[in-house]
Design a protein around this nucleic acid. Structure first.
Lengths: 333, 333
DNA sequence: GTGAAAGCGCTAACAA
DNA sequence: TTGTTAGCGCTTTCAC
């Protein structure tokens, strides 16, 4: 990489002249400016990012901490973040907490040494169960703003982007009720995290309002989802509706139904949180609650960047709800 | 963030004393060392990463350019990279090329300004179809090593990690032949990228060797995979085996078969490139060709880091093949 | 219109 | 054992 110094030497001018010329300062004569620029171009000069960061005390880099990148929703959010960040000239450093509190803490600590200007994150499962939030507060107090999305800690003062999990599940369940379904089950592989709980509550409210009995299947980590759902169907042959908290459950619920000679959506209606691409994994295609992951990511990035660049931003933090949409496919009537 | 300067002032010693003490230099007396360390700890001092990078002319950061993060295989590789990189004290800056040549070029350019020490990448589709490689060569000539994985450019001199796509598909097809399948089809949504082509060739070789006629369904971007596969089955009712080049095709091939009253694996055997978690999306579970994505990521990171830290590494570049494994599930006999 | 110099935070060669 | 100094690449104030 060529530096200002080298350019200066070759042009027989001072470093500051080169710097100013490249920054189009009108302190510098037009002729010199052109001369400098020409040489810079010919050498493909790029200002050293690290030096700039040191000088200006900002890195134009965002730390993103994701609990699990294999989760389609989360990686889609990451996609949205990256896109929006790039648009504003920011790069992202990605850390994967792997649902571990320690890794989350470490990542926060590690990047708080000047590597990033702020964070976008979704909280690890372990962090949620242990209900730890001090590390977030510490980071914020150190002057690094955080934007949380999806799995957020309400007790931390920061901007948040969330999904209307409760509402959405409530409504989706009501849709099945409107189809005259009499025994609607709820299947979840994510009952331990905040959003999983919200979804279950939304379902509960909807069925209880109708005087129905909730019927819930919770699939634990390491359990075979197909087996569990199979047993569940066997034990509860009267199920005629399924609300799934995660995409795998929804897809499997449909595909497994056929083993019991239950036609979807005639005998059994299924709706679940998922994305378009995964909805194709079931025949018929899963009716989905879309979370607009990319939009969530974009919004999170936008919020953080605004906070980073507008020092006069209000001190009160906002929580933005991105509404889900129910996309009717062929697994419901 | 507290700096050396501030610590030095508070301790009434020089900056370099503090620096040396914190780095456990035995130039500094034990007492002073302890004093310094105590204060540093109390202030939670962390050396400024940017300053370090500038000084040492290396960032301990790897640029990762991924064509599509929504692809489960690619995001799993990213997972592997992140993990391995962290183990060695490296962070990763993630860029998503979105299969676009321009974005790939931009990312390379943008990060080559001192932001990263090297790159790990998989080539964008557009780059492969246009067969452009100059930007890679430029980056390498600028002193930034590249490790390519999965979709690689053979004409670029760099380390590569690839999958035995041809072999694996050949063998998988042979497995179906061993099951006495008479009409084995190949379904692919990725026929435009290098690995997709290799897989198709592996399939072709296997069926041609047996004197069978290849039967290939190529699904284009934007087409409805379910529809296409449905039509395909309808037109070719004699199909009794499917080799899928991508996971969606495999899963759909199984789930759609039932619409034609074909029992899997009795009447129809399916095998496809996929991962464990996605194999659960079909009933019965898809027999998969596992690519060991995490391992690929880890290897790529390991290779790059070795090259970054060992200046005396051989100039000849290596291409490592990570062998796939065939994991028998219930969609084959 | 151009250049010298300071400083961002850190390390390390050299001086004391 | 501790301190001074230079320098990584850049911007910017101030002097010429």
């Amino acid at each position: 990489m060529v530096t200002l110094k080298q350019l200066a030497k070759e042009l027989n001018v001072s470093i500051s002249t080169v710097s100013k010329a490249l920054n189009d300062s009108d302190e510098i004569g037009k002729v010199t400016r052109e001369r400098v620029k020409a040489l810079a171009t010919s050498y493909n000069y790029k200002p050293n990012k690290v030096a700039l960061s040191l000088k200006q005390n900002k890195t134009k880099t965002i730390g993103v901490i994701i609990p699990n990148i294999l989760n389609h929703f989360l990686s889609k959010v990451l996609f949205g973040i990256e896109r929006e960040a790039n648009l504003h000239g920011y790069n992202i450093i990605t850390c994967i907490s792997n649902e571990s509190l320690q890794k989350e803490k470490d990542s926060l600590q590690l990047l708080a040494n000047g590597s990033v200007d702020g964070f976008i994150l979704s909280i690890a499962e372990e962090t949620q169960t242990k209900n730890e939030i001090e590390h977030f507060k510490g980071t914020i107090n150190a002057g690094l703003p955080i934007v949380m999305f999806d799995r957020v800690a309400h007790d931390v003062q920061c901007d948040k982007i969330i999904v209307d999990d409760f509402e959405a599940t409530f409504k989706a369940t009501k849709t099945l009720i409107a189809e005259q379904r009499k025994q609607i089950a709820f299947i979840s592989k994510i009952d331990t995290i905040s959003v999983g709980k919200l979804r279950e509550r939304g379902y509960n409210k909807a069925v209880l309002e109708e005087g129905m009995t909730p019927l819930v299947l919770r699939i634990k980590k390491g359990e075979d989802a197909q087996d569990k759902i199979k047993q569940f169907y066997k034990k509860n042959p009267e199920i005629d509706g399924v609300v799934a908290a995660d995409s795998a459950s929804g897809v499997i619920a449909i595909n497994m139904a056929r083993n019991f000679k239950r036609r979807v959506p005639k005998d059994l209606s299924v709706v679940g949180f998922s994305s378009k691409s995964v909805s194709y994994h079931s025949v018929p295609k899963l009716t989905i609650i879309r979370q607009h992951a990319k939009k969530i990511g974009a919004k999170a990035a936008e919020l953080l960047i605004r906070r980073l660049e507008n020092t006069q931003l209000p001190k009160d933090y906002s929580t933005k709800v991105i509404k889900t949409s129910l996309v009717k496919n062929k697994s419901t009537l």
